[in-house]
C-alpha cells in the first residue's frame, strides 16, 4: 500500500515538473494543453495558470473578420429571409494560430429585399451575417453593414404620367440593386467562441506559423441553409 502511494506521488510530481518546464507556450503546445481540462487539484499544483493556454483557441467577441459574398444577390432574385453564402477572405489568427482559414464558409441572411416598384420606387436589399462554420464550430457574426437601394425613378414616372398618360407611370420601374459574388464585406464576431485545439495546431508550411486544417467537407447530414444558395 505504501509503495503504491509513493508511486502515485512520484507520478504526480513528475507530471507537475514536466508542465512547469514547458517553455513559453507555443501555439501548438498551448492548444494541446487546452485540450486537457484542468481539475482544481491540477490548478493548485501547476505554476502556470491554465488560462494561459486558452487564448490561442478563443476568438473574442468584436474580432473583425473580412468576408466576401459567396453568391450573387439582387433585389430581383433574393427574397426576405433567404440565406446566402459567405466566405472568409482573411484568416482569423489568434496568438499566431490560424483558427479560421481563408475560404471558411459562412452564412448570411437577407433581411430586406424588394425589387424596384411600379411608379419608380427604388428596390432595397439589406443583408446580415449570421455565422462562420469552422470544422463544425459556429462562430456567430454580427455588424455586417451591407445594404442599399436602387435608383429612385419616381420623378421620371410622374413626368411620364403628366406629359403622356397616367398609365405610363405604372410602366416606369424603380432601379434594382445587385451585389455580385465576391463583393467584400466586413463583420464582427458576436460572442467569444472556443475553438477546439485540434482545429488550431497545424504548422503553416510556408510561414512556419501554426495553421488550422482546411475546412472539412460538409457532413452528409449537413443541413446548412447556405447549401440552398444559387451560386452560379
Amino acid at each position: 500500500m505504501k509503495l503504491a502511494l509513493l508511486a502515485a506521488m512520484q507520478m504526480a510530481v513528475i507530471g507537475v515538473s514536466a508542465r512547469a518546464e514547458t517553455p513559453s507556450p507555443g501555439p501548438a503546445s498551448s492548444a494541446a494543453v487546452a485540450a486537457q481540462p484542468a481539475t482544481p487539484s491540477d490548478a493548485s499544483r501547476t505554476t502556470a495558470p491554465p488560462e494561459a493556454a486558452k487564448p490561442c483557441c478563443v476568438i473574442s467577441a468584436g474580432t473583425l473578420v473580412s468576408l466576401e459574398i459567396g453568391q450573387t444577390l439582387s433585389t430581383k432574385g433574393s427574397q426576405t429571409g433567404d440565406t446566402f453564402k459567405l466566405r472568409l477572405t482573411a484568416p482569423i489568427v489568434i496568438n499566431g494560430v490560424t483558427v479560421a482559414p481563408v475560404g471558411a464558409a459562412g452564412v448570411g441572411e437577407v433581411i430586406d429585399s424588394r425589387p424596384g416598384a411600379m411608379g419608380g420606387g427604388p428596390g432595397k436589399l439589406i443583408l446580415a451575417a449570421r455565422y462562420l462554420d469552422v470544422d463544425g464550430v459556429r462562430i456567430p457574426l454580427q455588424s455586417l453593414k451591407l445594404g442599399g437601394s436602387g435608383a429612385d425613378n419616381t420623378g421620371s414616372a410622374v413626368m411620364a404620367a403628366a406629359l403622356v398618360s397616367p398609365l405610363l407611370m405604372l410602366a416606369v420601374k424603380g432601379g434594382d440593386l445587385t451585389y455580385p459574388e465576391g463583393m467584400p464585406a466586413r463583420a464582427k464576431v458576436a460572442s467569444d467562441v472556443q475553438i477546439p485545439p485540434t482545429a488550431a495546431a497545424q504548422p503553416d508550411p510556408s510561414t512556419g506559423a501554426p495553421q488550422a486544417p482546411p475546412p472539412a467537407a460538409p457532413a452528409p447530414n449537413d443541413s446548412s441553409p447556405a447549401s440552398k444558395g444559387s451560386t452560379p
Partner: peptide, 26 residues
Amino acid sequence: RMQVDPGETYYVEGRMTIALLGYNVV
C-alpha cells in the same frame, strides 16, 4: 426592415420623392 446589432450605429436617409398626389418618402 433592418438588422440592428449591439454597439452599432446605422444610418437611414429619408428621401422625398414626388408622387401624383403630393409626395412620398423613401
